[in-house]
Write a protein that binds this DNA or RNA. Structure first.
Lengths: 251, 251
DNA sequence: ACAAAAGTGTTACTTTTACACCCATGA
DNA sequence: TCATGGGTGTAAAAGTAACACTTTTGT
């Protein structure tokens, strides 16, 4: 991996170090206080929030770029990350927005600057353990923090659209693969897991039926019950198998 | 839409008319003789086949580019088309391959040519009515024709990978949405439809259960039975609703 | 008239839903 | 001790899977 370029580097030498016309945006989901949260940057030069994003080094895959961006904003690696859609509307790039940032950062503003071109953005969503995240702002943002989804803040450019698509992708994925677990700590209780599912799917579920179904997947191990709610964790092998094969259903 | 550029145009002025670093590849599926087929180009300058693909005009969405490419190769528009994945491996572009094509076409070969850069490719799969397609080769191919999938021909660059991913995406989609119908003519028989499902999913299904389930979706209209196998067609309204809402299942 | 393919219904089994009571914990 | 939340089982309903015979069509 390369050294992290500064904004100045990006503006001045972006064309050399990055793949042109392509960016990566990450929708990072966490779960806290029985709510689904999303990690957003508060932009420095506009009263807007934005998704963590970045560019792809010349010899890097988009996946690696997403991992890198995630690591920078959360301190985490080895987390669940999935490419879900590529956004290509020619009007999605906002020249004025970037031009403004370049000016405010006191950099030379030539109109053909690399940053001002049209970008398509490859969207990833990430599921992380809220408690493990150490949000870190980037150079162009004042802060990096968790936000609620209903309603979500107003985001720059087409980021609200990206966020919505990510949410849809997550909801669909949840029906096929046990992805939700990535949002929880290593040990968790059944009610916590249920709340998580209810939050993501935006509907209430029957406690007993939920438990039966989840346990039926055979991917959970019951921990020793000290007190009231039992603690569960994964049977890692079965869990990975389930991730690969899906949870059945269909023909 | 713009005029279709020639290969010479592309090589010489690609950088001006197209979005750089991004291409579109289309996996076009058809159904014929109880087999799933894919439309491939036979390359001119290498003993390889390739997926129909192309580039994105400066003011065009990737979706529009895919529609355009499809129209050029099949003569069809208004067909089912879905973005399924973006391929970003830096080694997926094959400089030698393009360089060779440029040479063989008798064009000047500067090493920094636009075509020789790294490309990420946005993958689309299309489902078309086999009988309506008029395959048309492009400038760099000798022919455009249907091919079997098991086994599929050896394809250029990472196109075998793209094809496999498209197939997987189609199989998964089929469990959620009634997409298979796009591969059939307006009127079709139940056995035809079943064969289609069996082919895509690569497994056999019970006739009676299949019929019941399909009819249960309420998206088919029974035609007048002249002779033996009944003809079915869509209840367009219900069909579109089902496309939107999925076929149920899950939580 | 024979073979091949299409049409149809019932039964067992599995999965899903709906629902109520007891126990432990903490206020 | 009372309220809250967590734990557990059963019965009805729906859906799925398995299965065989009759009718039509084409040769």
């Amino acid at each position: 991996m390369q050294i992290k370029p500064t904004f100045k580097n990006i503006v001045q030498t972006g064309a050399k170090i990055f793949l042109s016309s392509v960016s990566v945006d990450c929708v990072i989901f966490g779960f806290y206080g029985n709510e689904l949260k999303v990690l957003l940057l508060q932009m420095k030069h506009a009263d807007l929030h934005g998704l963590p994003g970045g560019f792809i080094f010349r010899e890097e895959t988009a996946d690696a770029a997403a991992v890198r961006i995630l690591k920078e904003r959360t301190g985490l690696d080895a987390i669940f990350l999935k490419q879900f859609y590529t956004f290509t509307d020619p009007r999605r790039s906002d020249k004025k927005f970037h031009l403004n940032a370049i000016k405010k950062e006191g950099l030379a503003t030539d109109k053909d600057n690399w940053l001002l071109q049209r970008f398509v953005s490859i969207g990833y969503y990430a599921l992380v353990d809220f408690s493990k995240v150490l949000p870190a702002a980037d150079e162009l943002s004042v802060s990096c923090a968790w936000h609620q989804l209903y309603p979500a803040p107003v985001l720059m450019m087409d980021h609200n659209n990206i966020l919505n698509k990510a949410l849809l992708a997550l909801q669909q994925q949840l029906n096929n693969q046990p992805v939700g677990f990535n949002l929880l700590p290593l040990k968790f209780t059944m009610p916590e897991l249920q709340k998580l599912y209810e939050t993501i799917l935006n509907k209430t579920l029957d406690r007993r039926n939920f438990q039966r179904k989840i346990l039926g997947f055979g991917i959970l191990k019951k921990g020793v019950a000290h007190k009231a709610p039992f603690l569960y964790s994964f049977d890692v092998i079965n869990y990975n198998t389930a991730l690969m094969n899906g949870l059945g259903g269909g023909w």
